[in-house]
Simulated assay, not measured.
Amino acid sequence: MIPINTQFVSGVALSEFDGDTKILLLKRTKGEYWCHVAGKIEDGETGWQTIIREFDEETSIKVSQLYNSEYLEQFYEAKSNQLVVIPSFVVLCERHQEVILNPEHTDYQWCTLEEAKAIAPFHNQHKLYDHIWEQFVLSPPSEQRKISLT
């Protein structure tokens, strides 16, 4: 049997820079690879509350517009023999959003879709970014996906 791990959530931030939408990627200290924001759900939190906390902790971004991306990142982790299933969210940021990194990351970059896919190492990341680009950049997001933060 392979257990399913659903302890984590992820979020992709979008911001506009000089008329172009960009995706935020962070370079992790551990493993030194590029990724989007992610984190473990703590006791008493919902998934959406976790991603708001993680954005604040990892980037100092105060989330005001949060959407369900309707995409599940999923992969098999051989080391722990688990299927990992991660609900993903989209954060629509202010134009020219500033980022202040915590020690979990050494660098950040606001990327075009092509740039994000060029530096993110995992195929599942590329699929997530394609999905978000199609659903949140090329067309306006559905209001049914918007998460009320109150």
Rank of each mutant, 00 (worst) to 15 (best):
V63M: 04
Q49L: 05
G44M: 12
W48Y: 14
I51T: 02
E32K: 10
R28S: 09
E45I: 10
E70M: 07
I61S: 06
A38W: 11
T50W: 00
E32L: 10
Y33T: 12
L25C: 13
W34E: 08
S69C: 10
I51A: 01
E42S: 12
D56R: 11
T29L: 09
D43S: 14
K30Y: 01
E58S: 08
E32H: 11
T59P: 03
E57D: 05
C35V: 15
F55S: 06
G39S: 01
V37P: 00
G47S: 10
W48R: 00
G39L: 02
G31K: 04
I51R: 00
K40T: 11
T59E: 08
I51Q: 02
V37R: 03
F55G: 05
I52M: 11
Q49I: 01
E57C: 03
G47E: 09
T29N: 09
A38Y: 10
V37A: 13
E32Q: 11
Y33L: 12
H36Y: 15
S60L: 05
T50S: 11
L25S: 10
H36G: 15
Q49M: 11
G44S: 12
E57L: 11
I41L: 09
K40R: 13
E57H: 05
E58G: 03
S64Q: 07
L66M: 02
V37E: 04
C35N: 15
E54R: 13
H36A: 14
F55C: 06
R28I: 01
R28C: 01
L66F: 06
L66D: 02
L26I: 12
D56I: 11
G47F: 04
A38M: 10
Q65K: 12
D43E: 15
G44F: 12
K27C: 07
G44W: 12
I41P: 04
R53G: 00
I51D: 00
E57T: 05
E42L: 14
K62V: 15
S64I: 06
